[in-house]
Structure formats: structure tokens, C-alpha cells
Amino acid sequence: MTSQNSPERWDIFCAVVDNYGDIGVTWRLAKQLSAEQPIAITLWVDDLKSFSHILPALDPELVSQVHFGVTINQWSTPLAIAYQTGNVLIEAFACELPEQVKTSLIAMQQASKLDSSAAKPPLWLNLEYLSAESWVEGCHGLPSMQASGLKKYFYFPGFTAKTGGLICENKLFEKRDAWQLNLQNRQDLFASLGLSGIEPIDKVVSVFSYETKALLALCETWQDSEQTIHALFPKGRSLNSLQSILPCSIEELSAGMQIKLGNLVIHILPMTDQEGYDKLLWSCDFNIVRGEDSFLRAQWAAKPFIWHIYAQEDDYHLIKLDAFMQLYCNNLPPELAKSWKVLNLAFNNEQQELTASHWQKINLVDLPLLQHAKQWPIDAINDVDLVSRLVQFVKNS
């Protein structure tokens, strides 16, 4: 390997987990860094096939390619492309760096000790998962001394000024507002996705969740709703919960299909890129999301939502969910805050009856809830987004 320090070159390593979770966040970070900062970004990904689902232009057979100004390299073992050290090295979500990279870092560290004029290793950061828990403030930015003598810094995204911030592209809210202001955009988007029969007055819910009986309970409730509800599902894990009410096997479902069950119409979505997914969230009246990337994008959509958080041992995910709900509901009227919290908890605990009853208590056109969903992104961004904070952190370090 060759060493080539450059103040304007960063490397990001991402191991794909759960198909779209980690790579979704990492790809947004890489794109925004490349578009808004004078930095050359190289993104190393171990599963290009899964990555290509959210970046259709990506060719999984190529070991190196450029999209949106980002160089995307296949992370193979061993690396097919030589790693050249830059200014910053980010490992996304504690993925284990390749041995070739670690060897290079150690060699640079040792050389810089022997010769002060030698190039120093890049600043090494671990991008952590997003959490609203209070302890994140105390851990954000802390260094960890590795056995090799290198320091690795922990970068925690978060909702307060003492954390690493939230991924949000420049002028995203302005673009969203302009999109939502023109109601024809919604109808045009649905048509482009092959969705038919959705009238402007109909309620539309997007669903991107894990398996849960609570989703089945919601769909059974929607069948008996007073007005038509259109539920938009990508072909994936969410549908596994609905097999008992579907007229065919999940394998037989395909994009563009629709299934009418009373006043519920289930639509099967095609895969879309991240920009298309953002527009889908902007266009729905309510969004059910999972993981981290879609969870944050649902907030930026300024629409009510349910967060289906990834289950962890000893129900630790419920602690993370509660920490977020405490923040999110801070300025909501007490009764509305209670209903929204119980709805989210019931959905995550697979409590079917409780999920259905509290869904009915939340009026999708309830003005306080909609006003709160609109104001929340402005408050949550805390004036400075993650990329801006990250660049400043690197400068200060």
C-alpha cells in the first residue's frame, strides 16, 4: 500500500447490515460530504448488491465506480484496490476495518514516532448509531486508545447541541415544503410508482417495518375505516405479518399489485432510490418506519409516524424508544402525547388491541399533531446538521 495524506480526502467503511440500514445512513453521509464540502470521499462497501437496491445506477460487478461525486469501492478480503491513507478514516457503526488498513495505520503511527516529518495516520472515527439517550452527550467525541497506540474517536449522532447532530442536507426542508405545497406532486409520484386509484382526499400510509402482529391489527382496523386508506408496502419483511389476510403468497406479489380489503387498499411498491423514498414519505399522511435511516427521514417529512425500532436483548430498544418519545412529545398536548406514545409502544410490543385502539384515538388531520410534526424538524436540527458538526470536529481535532 502507498501512503498519501491529503487534507481533502476521507475514507468511509461500511458493512451492510439488514440490507439497507447501515448503508442507507452511510450513503447519505457520503453524498452530503461530497456535495457540500471540499472533500474527496471514498466509500468502501462489502455488499454492493444490497447497496444497488437504493442506488439503482450502481453496478455490483465493478470494484470501483463513481456516483454523485463519491468513489465507491468494493470492500473485499483482501482489498482489490490499494487503500491510500487520507486525512480522515470513518468506520460506520463499529464495522471491523480490513487488516490491510489497520496494518497501514500502525506503520504510519510507528514511522511518525521515529520521524516527526513523516506523514501521520488519518483521524480515525467510529460513527455510532443514532440515539436520544442522555448518556450520549457525555460519550460523544471521546477518544479510545487502541492496543496499537492509535486513537479512535467515537462520534455520536444525536438530538441535542452536545452531540454530533443529525444528517440533513442543505435546503432539504425548503425542498420538502415546495413539494408538499403542490398537491399534484403527490399524484404524479404515485403514478410514476405504478399506484392507481388513489384520490386526493384518500388517506395514504407508507409501511416499512419489521414483522409484527400489531401491523396485522392496524390493517384489520383500516378495513373498517370510514374512508379509504391506502397502505403502501415495499415487497419485504412488513408483508410477512399480513399473510393471513392476503389472497396469495408473498412470493406471488409484485410491484404495482393492489389488494382491496374493505376500505383498505394494499399497494405493492417498487424499489426506489433515497430521493424517491424521501418524496414518498413527504406524500403520505402517516408513515410507519424502521431502523435509523427511514426513522430520521420520516421526521424530516414533517408527517406523523410510528417508529418500529430494531429489537435488542433485554428489551433495551424500548429504553431507546422511550428516550426519543420523551423528546418528541415535549411540546405536544398531554392527551395527544399519551396516545402517540402508547401507539408506538404497543406497536413495538406487538399489542394488537392496544395498537388498534390508540390508532383510532389519533386523528390523522389533528391540527396539533400536524403542527408539531412540522415544527419538530426545525427544533431537532439545532441549527447545525451532522456533516457541518463533523467537519468542525475534524478541524478541532
Rank of each mutant, 00 (worst) to 15 (best):
S3R: 04
F13T: 00
C14A: 09
N19Y: 01
G21Y: 01
G21R: 03
I23A: 06
V25E: 07
Q32K: 08
E36T: 15
K49F: 07
S52M: 04
H53F: 09
D59R: 08
S64A: 07
F68M: 12
V70L: 01
A80H: 08
I81F: 03
Q84M: 10
G86L: 02
N87A: 12
A92D: 02
A92I: 03
E96L: 04
Q109L: 15
Q110M: 12
K120H: 04
P121W: 03
N126H: 11
L127S: 04
A132G: 02
G138M: 09
Q146D: 07
A147H: 05
L150F: 07
Y153N: 05
P157F: 01
F159R: 14
F159E: 13
T160Q: 11
T160V: 10
K162C: 07
T163K: 01
E169A: 15
E169D: 01
L181F: 13
Q184L: 11
R186M: 12
Q187L: 15
D188I: 08
A191D: 13
L195K: 07
S196R: 14
I201M: 08
V204M: 01
V205I: 14
S206W: 01
Y210A: 15
K213M: 11
K213P: 15
I229D: 09
A231G: 00
F233K: 10
F233T: 08
K235S: 04
R237E: 13
L242I: 09
L242E: 06
S254I: 03
K260C: 12
L261K: 12
N263M: 07
L264D: 00
L264K: 11
V265C: 15
W282F: 10
C284E: 09
G291S: 07
A298M: 05
Q299V: 09
Y310R: 09
D315V: 00
H317K: 09
I319E: 15
L321E: 01
L321W: 00
L321V: 02
N330M: 08
L332T: 00
K338D: 15
K338C: 06
S339A: 06
Q360R: 07
L367S: 12
P377L: 08
D379V: 11
A380D: 04
D385S: 07
L386G: 14
S388H: 04
V394L: 05
N396P: 03
